[in-house]
Simulated assay, not measured.
Amino acid sequence: MVNRQIKEKIIRLSGELTALRRKFHSEPELSWEEFKTTAFVCQYLDELGISYKKTEPTGVIAEIKGGKPGKTVALRGDMDALSVEELNKDLPYASKEEGKMHACGHDAHTAMLLIAAKALNDIKGDLPGNVRLIFQPAEEVGRGAKAMVEQGAMTGVDNVFGIHIWSQMPTDKVACTPGPQFASADIFNIHFKGQGGHGAMPQDCIDAAVIASSFVMNVQSIVSRTIDPQACAVVTVGRMDVGTRFNIIAENAKIEGTVRCFDPAVQDHVETQISHYAKQVAATYGGTAEVEYIRGTQAVINGEFSAKLVQQVAVESFGEEVLYDEKPTMGGEDFSFFLDEAPGSFALVGSGNPEKNTEWAHHHGKFNIDEAALVTGAELYAQYAWAYLHEEN
């Protein structure tokens, strides 16, 4: 199932792999601004002789054409960083950009996919099919994958595979089980409107602060009292903007939040309930509510065949002990847009190591990875592509 040449090649390239990751880490670029990263990926592919096309405004779609006819498997790696200040100032490869940081591991994903491409390109004559390489921008805003699909990333693809470095798992462990992996991630914005006035004369006013507070304090009943307890959902209000001055009763209150779940029916239900609840709460106090509900990414649901193939490849590559039972996360991932186009799966590769201080949460200013996990990720990318093409032909 696994290819010995791939394993040996990636081990030999481990130093280059680490150097690539550190380069990307020190030069972070935000969503839709990955111009230097895109240019570097193109240059690297040019040196390998791998054909590609740039996508707009950033991103790269490349393809390794096998020496034999067959299907096409896609490998995806995202490239964008976050608006987070790096707190690991002592690292020799710390971010050079103030207020920008690879705080989620996308630097590792890009580096791993490049090295996987290099290993696969060496044996392309033995590939019964093609390997599509998707270097994706703007995952952090949940829009990059959809844009890549619209620009042809999944045209002709039979199966798609992605990886995320995961600091909550021990280094080198691999998790990929059939079923839900990441939740859908929606956004809601609500504008409550009352009637402002003097803080000393509440009888003449409709207090938007009270309306908004009532909504926030009681909105969890949507989850606790209207959803099957065996299902799951998260409703979080993350921001409130209320009033203008200490002695003025607020006329306007704005809140922003997110909804996470795995079941599309639950997603539809929560959207309906939030709108209904906001308007009813506002009406109770004599105010009004305008609700904007924005569908973000859908849930990432691993296909059974693909997830089990990942497990098989991981065991054959790294041993039975590599498999890890990681529970589904309510975090969001726009890899779901690729799964709308073809079956596939999304794996987690552990990088948490207390001895190296790499157990910080994703999106934290001290986030870092145990670079020993890079070889695992790069090989998993390449071995999965090899295994899928040979499994299907």
Results as ranks from 00 to 15, higher is better:
residue 267 Q to C: 14
residue 321 E to L: 04
residue 289 A to S: 06
residue 318 F to P: 05
residue 248 I to S: 12
residue 320 E to G: 03
residue 336 S to K: 08
residue 317 S to A: 09
residue 323 L to A: 08
residue 262 F to D: 07
residue 289 A to H: 05
residue 318 F to G: 05
residue 231 A to T: 11
residue 265 A to Q: 12
residue 269 H to N: 12
residue 237 V to C: 03
residue 283 A to G: 14
residue 231 A to C: 12
residue 250 A to M: 13
residue 269 H to C: 07
residue 307 A to L: 00
residue 333 E to S: 05
residue 341 E to K: 11
residue 243 G to E: 05
residue 319 G to E: 05
residue 311 Q to E: 11
residue 347 A to F: 02
residue 248 I to F: 10
residue 308 K to W: 07
residue 240 M to T: 12
residue 292 E to R: 07
residue 288 T to L: 02
residue 283 A to M: 04
residue 292 E to N: 11
residue 284 T to A: 13
residue 344 G to F: 04
residue 282 A to Q: 08
residue 282 A to S: 13
residue 323 L to G: 02
residue 343 P to T: 11
residue 300 V to T: 06
residue 297 T to C: 14
residue 244 T to G: 11
residue 305 F to E: 15
residue 267 Q to F: 09
residue 348 L to D: 09
residue 266 V to R: 01
residue 343 P to W: 12
residue 289 A to G: 00
residue 332 G to L: 08
residue 278 A to M: 02
residue 251 E to Q: 07
residue 322 V to W: 00
residue 299 A to R: 05
residue 253 A to E: 00
residue 261 C to V: 00
residue 320 E to R: 04
residue 234 V to W: 05
residue 233 A to V: 09
residue 308 K to Y: 10
residue 279 K to L: 03
residue 319 G to I: 01
residue 350 G to V: 03
residue 327 K to V: 00
residue 277 Y to I: 06
residue 262 F to E: 08
residue 329 T to P: 06
residue 334 D to M: 01
residue 296 G to D: 10
residue 319 G to T: 01
residue 275 S to E: 15
residue 271 E to Y: 08
residue 270 V to S: 04
residue 254 K to A: 12
residue 297 T to D: 14
residue 332 G to F: 06
residue 328 P to W: 03
residue 316 E to D: 06
residue 311 Q to V: 01
residue 269 H to S: 12
residue 264 P to K: 13
residue 342 A to M: 07
residue 275 S to G: 15
residue 253 A to L: 03
residue 302 N to Q: 12
residue 324 Y to F: 01
residue 271 E to M: 08
residue 270 V to D: 03
residue 283 A to V: 04
residue 329 T to F: 00
residue 300 V to M: 04
